[in-house]
Amino acid sequence: MLISGGRKNIIKRAKKQALDWLTGLLLILIIAGCTKNESLNAAGSTTVLPIVVLAAERFKALHGVNVIVNAGGSGVGINQLGEGKIAIGMISRNISDAEIKRYPNVNFVVHSIGKDAVVPVVSSEIYDAGIKSLSLRQIGKIYLGEITSWKQLGGPDKDILVIDKEKSRGTRHVFMEIVLGDKEVSAPGADLVLGDNNEEQTAVMQSDSAIGMLSNAWLNSDVKGLSIILQNGSTVEPKLENISNGRFPITRDLLLVTSGEPAGNIKAFIDFILSDEGQKIVRDSGYVSLEQ
């Protein structure tokens, strides 16, 4: 009697515990399922990221819809959209033919939300030593490894630390397309190959002899943007007005990309970025808005 009573109790307790666990699990699943309906995923270019992050905050306050934003680079944005993992890809370059071919079932639709320039940047030490402008040819030769010292360009007697970016990065596509004529060109002169804008910016800051490529919004007192010497001999500074009037040679559109024409929350979010409030965010992030 005593024995079976003990067993019953234990079994009863185990049953109750199992039931509690199951109920808890079910609740979590239900909650997770509910929130999923009210959220959008975006990923890709770290150049477009600051705009979308700020816009996502405002959009949530206005419409109560969560936009989850991740980095990764333009290539990641396109791949994840192609594989259906995200609703909005952020890209700062055009989609390549290879990428379109890679996802034959996806109809990529791009939405321009602003403009930016890719600026050749140098460490402030080099800028202060007198290298304030270079021609595209000179920059190209640096990346090809034909120019290896700042002395060859009239600067200090220091080897150039050539910082390249990962091949699928939007900034690199745009930069190399203009500088060397091929967006996926190899750069045998490169010393470091880094990823996003922050990583590139840090490396240029830490060095006293570096050259790199950055979005215009990432320039600061340690990372100086070079003016570009055009073929007719005039120089163009990397300034917002030169980007909006198209004089600066390396400009690009900042894009959001969706799979097919956007609808519902996706459309609402893109429309928000295109609205006056959204375009102000674009300007505040250091880029050129569409009307400018």
């Binding site: 990764g72 680079g73 290539g75 990641v76 791949n79 994840q80 192609g82 594989e83 890679r102 996802y103 990962e166 699928s168 990823g195």
Partner: peptide, 11 residues
């Protein structure tokens, strides 16, 4: 770590 996300699955 740097490249796997940039590639298409099964390419």
């Amino acid at each position: 770590g740097r490249e796997i996300e940039e590639t298409a699955f099964a390419s």
